[in-house]
Amino acid sequence: MSDRIFGVFGILLAIGFAVAALAIEESFLSDAVGPKAFPLIIAAILGLSSAVIAFRPDVEPVWPPLGRLAEIAAAVVVMVLYAQMLPVAGFVIATFFAAAYLAWRLGSGPVESVLVGLGTSVGIYVIFHLILGLSLARGPFGF
């Protein structure tokens, strides 16, 4: 069933891609092939292979139970928040929270999570910023 849904999704993606390709505005100065041809070929391959996937599905993959899916969704939310907060809170603080969260969800105890968060953010800051001179996000405190 997963493969059938995936295949149908692929076909829709291919159609969408083809429609978007047809909508590309041609420049008045164009080569013999133009900017549309290659995307259209790709859309055709995408659609064909999706159709094959939908008609000849593989064995059903093992999907995790709902709780685990929620776990992954929560991690995605935390990462998105991390990306947004990085310029606001600064590298060290944002990274501390993100790393500690991931460590906690992977099964660390509270103390260990805090230590992992602290170690990761300060460690990266020292190695990559202070020693190697990489520019990291600056927060209100300059780190």
Binding site: M79, Y82, A83, F91, T95, A98, A99, A100, L102, A103, L106, G107, S108, E112, V116, G117, T120, S121, G123, I124, F128, L134, L136
Partner: peptide, 15 residues
């Protein structure tokens, strides 16, 4: 253990 390793991997990727 990977509960220590994976957060580091994720953060280094972001950096």
């Amino acid at each position: 253990p990977s509960r220590i390793l994976m957060p580091i991997v994720a953060m280094v990727s972001f950096v």
